[in-house]
Design a protein around this nucleic acid. Sequence first.
DNA 1: GGGTATTGCCATATTTTTGCCTCATTCAGG
DNA 2: CCTGAATGAGGCAAAAATATGGCAATACCC
Lengths: 231, 231
Amino acid sequence: MPRRIAIVEDEIAIRRNFEDALRRQGYQVSGYADRQSALDAFSRRLPDLVIIDVGLGDDVEGGFELCRELRGMSRVLPIMFLTARDSDPDVISGLRLGADDYLTKDISLPHLMARIVVLFRRVEMLSGEQSTGAWLERDALRLSVERMEVTWNGTAVPLTVTELWIVHSLARRPGHVRSRQQLMDDANILVDDQTITSHVKRIRRKFKAIDKSFDKLATVYGAGYRWNSSD
Amino acid sequence: MPRRIAIVEDEIAIRRNFEDALRRQGYQVSGYADRQSALDAFSRRLPDLVIIDVGLGDDVEGGFELCRELRGMSRVLPIMFLTARDSDPDVISGLRLGADDYLTKDISLPHLMARIVVLFRRVEMLSGEQSTGAWLERDALRLSVERMEVTWNGTAVPLTVTELWIVHSLARRPGHVRSRQQLMDDANILVDDQTITSHVKRIRRKFKAIDKSFDKLATVYGAGYRWNSSD
DNA sequence: GGGTATTGCCATATTTTTGCCTCATTCAGG
DNA sequence: CCTGAATGAGGCAAAAATATGGCAATACCC
């Protein structure tokens, strides 16, 4: 899913400028001209990053106020400030208030991108929200790579790492056939085709030990394996 | 425990300048004049933040090389670059390489402090230690990083710093598997995988000395360790 | 400076997992 | 319904990962 960036800036020219630049980089951008409309939008769903003009609205410190409010909504939401000059003394107050970085309005696109990438990178790494973080659920199957845990109808299936990757590879694409080669790639191993057959054998045995009638992991003669799923 | 900051800069005047400034702010600072001595020092224990001069040594890009090496050691270690001018085009390459921020050599102390505080704040927040002062409670475990105290069913467990960080890293995310590498990052050490195994061994021994049936710290074969918790 | 605690890692024992061999079955197509 | 190819079952030894006991090197503390 693309990262969603919100920019709150009342000078329409500048805002458009940033919006366009960021969109061209593949981000999903939404702009707001004032504090209130931004808050309204955020109350429903927070973006992944907010860029705020310090001197928002009439108030010289309108941006700070918004920053404070956003910090109240989320302590981890990345916030960047936009200031006229780098040396702006407000910058420090902004950072202390909870912002993560500040940009000057004339920042070059490469610089802007670099800073955004850095911020996202850190958020990702530290929050550990790898793409594998969520639970994969199919029928009675529930699988989490992060927790290295698989359950069938609620009872745990004691799969090994390799087995888990194979199940994951199959179950994430219900109905699609995965060749033995593809399964090797997903499990990050390089072995004989026959070995994959062995792994599947063990996987089935483990599932059947729990559910005698387990039949989700189907063989597609001459092609590979497939996860049969109704949902 | 005070944050430990390392600064790698060959111009002694500038280095002293930063060292003094940071020390006055209560940080534990250590300076290095060249890449090698910094690496030697870091090989055992990583600081909490590294500030690197881009133009380190004769090589114009000496700092980048060091950054790359450090990133290899730890993917989360905060790194800041020091450049002559803000507009330095190298800045971007630096950020892409894994740095988190860059400073100009003539940065004012308040600005410097603000940036450092911001970086530390984010690391702290995202790494979940809402405030290391808080007590982490899971099952019969009660742990405080700040107070360096751990109890199991009320009786104190005499863990060492490293051991405590490992337990903290695991217990914070019950059910989630942490790889040995991740544990190293959390404990801020750079060692052999085997050494993590050793630490776990000692941790278990200490817990079992108190509770013969202790089994919360489970090993996940091929993946790492996990804190099994009911709550 | 001497004693103690901590830490990293080695060698060795254990435990788990994995790869693949053999033989029985099944399958697609004549 | 026969046949070569593909797949399943059982089994096993090799490989990989982990547990343990030790020990030397540091770091730490009076």
